[in-house]
Design a binder for these strands. Structure first.
Length: 920
RNA sequence: GGGUGUUUAGCUCAGUUGGGAGAGCGACGGCCUUACAAGCCGUAGGUCGCAGGUUCGACCCCUGCAACACCCA
């Protein structure tokens, strides 16, 4: 075999798998299905994706190998706002605006962009080894899914669960669309608190002072509010104040919502431009005065001089004018949460407009119940809380977006403003008996992208048709996703699927942690700390990485800092580690933690692990190729029985880990078995046998078989995690050992057989390991090279020890490289020696001339000190009456045994020390 | 302000019914031992955030505090 070079093997195998249709569901096994969280069709793969999809792929491959009828449904999302923004930017570079093209032409342009860039994400998924069922790949805007969207919208409308109304919504004044609460991100930013004087109508020389962070909205004030119990203002409730800069008189009202501690305890009420004020306005039947246009400039409802000003210019003008009039009490610095559009980054405006909403409470109730009843289970469990808190306080969902790219709302209006909702214009006409001369125009808005993704698990399977796929694969088994998307997507899928299919979309939700950079910072383009998974697979030079991270930044001034940090973190760029190593890293770090710092050193470590397995396979092939081997349990020795036992323990551990979504434990079990047991011990222990002329042929043949067989099982066991190299190696296993199949992908997953776990073999090999480790310790401590043979003498051994030494003498000889190995004569004095304890037995390496007396004494002192501490602690326990009386008897017995052992060991160590001191 | 989570070796993290503190990387020392130097052998390093409590016994359970992170308002 050649050196391990992942790039030489990975891509070719993926093509083979795909062209042979191995990813397709098949057989009559239990259906197992997962729907991919649809990536944005024009997007690229980031670390979070790679992480999630790697986890899913292991589950899919695991279940496929277990014989389940397994489907991983592929599809992409049209990502309404994100995609429209990209194309709008492209147009801007040509000096055009979407309106210059018009709706039709603009959409053509977006479809073109989708065609050219839509392949990126799918080819990246292939590089990752994702065994997706590409044949039934779907897209949220394709015909079938659009039909599902239409159907759902119309039925919800018919059930009275969709309504249209003028409401205060989150308005993005740059994109000129409404956004749902979830698309708005609030962060604290420095600002000011202005204290304004509002003169009382009856006595204009007196005034109330209101505190506000948004003085320009005072132009739309329709009341001033105080707390009903606030004694400072009780006399004023019901009176009026004069709203400065306008000629309006507005009432003073009392409402318990007012925070008496904030500012002066007196707040201005602007129902058309603040969500809380809107609610209060509803309670008190206040007028709504909208003072903004859709681009956040001041409109004609405001006094002449402010009209047309941008909101922030208007703020300055209002403050200046109030100050000139002596109506500005004071200005304070103040931090306040500022809402910004998730996509555009601009300050969001509460804005009054006509929108479509889903009445959500009736849908939320069964969705809450499904989780309460355990029909859907969160893994880890505690994410249920996030879900419940969100669902129990859920607000109606604004689903209309003033965009073009998306599912157009199936509502038509006649000249009188009557609205007709139907699956098509024809249906609308037919249902309402409208003659052809009634002119209908369709609603210009499209639906929130999440509306179509909410239908994902069943729309991709053909709904509203009752397809065999829907019948077989729905509900899906598990949804793997990040916690950031529970509210956006997971909760909405649960609601919609329960409503339209009557069953849950998935039985389990595995919530992954969030992959951050080494500093624990969220990875993002603007921070310039993002990693492209393919750069870890293929490698990238430092210069290319910097170029990639600083290219096309929203804030170009960040470029220098990003370059500096990148140079510091990756001084030599990133090496090509290959997909298998990257994937294995993901499993190893998939702990229950919420954030996962991605550490490139670990990728390197797991690349080394892949290399280790590769080389072990090389060893197996070198020693079995063109040589006879045969399965022969009678001829196999204790070491063979031991490695099989360890293999079966590992098989059990991996299976259990996968059933419980503990990918980290699965990875750990594989890593430790393959490296620590198979490579470091088993392979070493085969060497003296395979190359010795004195060993019976049937043992050698049995051992060759064990090597091949254990390797073959390791490959199947590890395949879901490191699919490429396991396939590559598996193909080279002789057919007699590996069955006649064409691919490892479709072989049976190993199952643990308790009968193969031979405890006697395990304890014998543990003894061998102890003896070898003991002699290695002595060599290590004394700096004696393996090239220099050392005499080894045992003393005080039991019958069992004697048997084992006889039986394993040749193995020990090979591993220890002694000049001589044997028992101390019964009455002979112990020679001066470096020593090691193996239970009751002592291992002596008499090195009269070579021994470093001081070093040996120091080593023994340390050992004695350690044992003394342990003795003290154990004596304390055993001597404690309470412990002896109250602790379980087996624990007490265990402690007593331990104490006996410690005492015996201590006595020996002290004797050894005395012996060494005696040396001249 | 409310909620959730985190705090274990220099770094990144395991530690699943409360009963002997672990791994990888890094550090140090020694090895080209015919699968692998992307390797092998060995060594050092931790009052398990702080303070109480429960218990015969606490990294683990309870209370409080601190720092950090995220979510919601």
């Amino acid at each position: 075999m050649d050196k391990y070079q992942p790039q030489d093997i990975e891509q070719a195998w993926y093509e083979t798998w795909e062209t042979n249709n191995y990813f397709a569901p098949s057989g009559n096994g239990t259906p197992f299905s997962i729907a991919i969280p649809p990536p944005n069709v024009t997007g690229t793969l980031h670390m979070g994706h790679a992480f999630q999809h790697s986890l899913v792929d292991s589950l899919i491959r695991f279940h496929r190998m277990k014989g389940d009828n397994t489907l991983w449904q592929m599809g992409t999302d049209h990502a309404g706002i994100a995609t429209q923004m990209i194309v709008t930017e492209q147009l801007a570079a040509e000096g055009k605006r979407p309106t210059d093209l018009g709706r039709e032409k603009f959409l053509e342009r977006v479809w073109e962009w989708k065609e050219t860039s839509g392949g990126t994400i799918t080819s990246q998924l292939r590089r990752l080894g994702a065994s997706l069922h590409w044949e039934t790949e779907r897209f949220t805007l394709d015909e079938g899914l659009s039909r599902a969207v239409l159907e759902v919208f119309v039925r919800l409308y018919e059930d009275g669960l969709i309504y249209r109304g003028k409401r205060l919504v989150n308005w993005d004044p740059v994109l000129k669309t409404s956004l749902s609460d979830l698309e708005v991100e609030s962060e604290e930013e420095p600002g000011h608190l202005w204290h304004l004087r509002y003169p009382l109508a009856d006595t204009p020389d007196q005034y109330l002072i209101v505190a506000t962070t948004r003085p320009e909205t005072m132009l739309g004030d329709t009341a001033v509010a105080v707390h009903p119990d606030d004694e400072r203002y009780t006399g004023l409730v019901g009176k009026e104040v004069i709203l400065p800069l306008t000629d309006r008189r507005i009432p003073v009202i009392a409402d318990p919502y007012v925070d008496r501690e904030f500012g002066t305890g007196c707040v201005k009420i602007t129902p058309a431009h603040d969500f809380n004020d809107y609610d209060m306005g509803q309670r008190h039947e206040l007028a709504l005065i909208n003072i903004l246009n859709d681009d956040a400039t001041i409109n004609d409802n405001a006094p002449q001089k402010y009209r047309g000003l941008d909101r922030f210019e208007a703020r300055k003008a209002v403050v200046a004018d109030l100050e000139r009039l002596g109506l500005l009490e004071k200005t304070e610095d103040h931090k306040l949460p500022v809402p910004r559009g998730e996509r555009s980054g601009v300050v969001i405006e509460p804005y009054l407009s006509d929108q479509w909403f889903v009445k959500i409470k009736p849908l939320a109730e069964p969705a809450i119940k499904a989780v309460e009843d355990g029909d859907i289970e969160f893994v880890p469990r505690n994410y249920e809380n996030t879900y419940f808190v969100w669902m129990r306080n859920i607000q109606d969902w604004n689903i209309s977006r003033q965009q073009w790219w998306g599912h157009r709302i199936p509502a038509w209006y006649d000249a009188d403003g009557n609205v007709y909702v139907a699956r098509s214009e024809q249906e609308a006409r037919a249902q309402h008996d409208l003659s052809d001369d009634v002119v209908l125009s369709q609603d210009d808005d499209v639906l929130d992208t999440w509306f179509s993704s909410a239908l994902w698990t069943f729309s991709t399977l053909g709904w509203p048709e009752q397809t065999p796929e829907l019948e077989t694969f729905h509900s899906t088994d598990v949804m793997v996703t990040g916690h950031d998307i529970i509210t956006f997507w997971v909760s909405r899928m649960i609601m919609m699927t329960l409503k339209f299919i009557g069953e849950v979309p998935f039985k389990k939700i595995y919530v992954t942690g969030m992959v951050t950079d080494a500093e624990g910072q969220k990875q993002s383009k603007s921070r310039g700390n993002g990693l492209d998974p393919l750069d870890i697979i293929d490698g990238i030079s430092l210069d290319d990485l910097i170029a990639k991270r600083t290219d096309n930044l929203m804030q170009p001034r960040m470029a220098e800092r990003i370059a500096k940090n990148t140079r510091k973190e990756f001084p030599d760029g990133i090496k090509a580690f290959g997909t298998d190593a990257l994937r294995f890293t993901f499993y190893a770090i998939a702990t229950r933690s919420r954030t996962i710092r991605f550490d490139m050193n670990r990728v390197e470590g797991y690349r080394n692990f892949c290399n280790k397995l590769w080389n072990a396979a090389n060893y197996v092939f070198l020693n079995t190729a063109d040589k006879p081997f045969s399965q022969n349990d009678e001829a196999a020795d204790v070491v063979d029985r031991w490695i099989v036992a360890e293999l079966h323990r590992t098989i059990a551990a991996v299976n259990q880990a996968m059933e419980t979504y503990r990918f980290d434990l699965a990875a750990k079990a594989l890593y430790e078995f393959i490296w620590d047991e198979f490579c470091d011990w088993y392979v070493e222990l085969t060497k003296p046998i395979l190359n010795s002329p004195d060993v019976p042929a049937d043992l050698i043949e049995a051992k060759r078989y064990t090597l091949l067989s254990v390797l073959e099982q390791i490959l199947r066991l590890a395949h879901p995690f490191i699919p490429f190299m396991t396939e590559e190696i598996w193909q080279q296993i002789p057919a007699q050992v590996r069955s006649q199949g064409k691919t490892i992908m479709l072989q049976a997953y190993p199952e643990s057989d308790a009968a193969r776990i031979d405890e006697q073999a395990i304890s014998d090999v543990a003894w061998i390991k102890d003896v070898v480790t003991g002699s290695r310790n002595i060599r290590g401590e004394m700096d004696i090279s393996l090239a220099k043979p050392i005499p080894v003498i045992f003393s005080n051994g039991s019958d069992e020890d004697q048997r084992r030494l006889e039986e394993y003498r040749s193995l020990l000889t090979f591993l220890i490289r002694p000049s001589d190995i044997g028992w101390l004569e019964p009455d002979a004095p112990k020679p001066p020696a470096s020593t090691h304890l193996i239970g009751e037995m002592e291992l002596l390496v008499p090195l009269a001339g070579l021994i470093d007396k001081d070093a040996e004494i120091a080593r023994l002192d340390k050992e004695i000190e350690r044992k003394e501490k342990e003795q003290q602690r154990t004596e304390g326990k055993v001597g404690n009456k309470n412990f002896v009386e109250k602790a379980p008897p087996e624990v007490v017995a265990k402690e007593r045994d331990k104490l006996t052992e410690i005492r015996s060991a201590l006595a020996k160590l002290r004797q050894q020390r005395a012996d060494v001191v005696e040396l001249e």
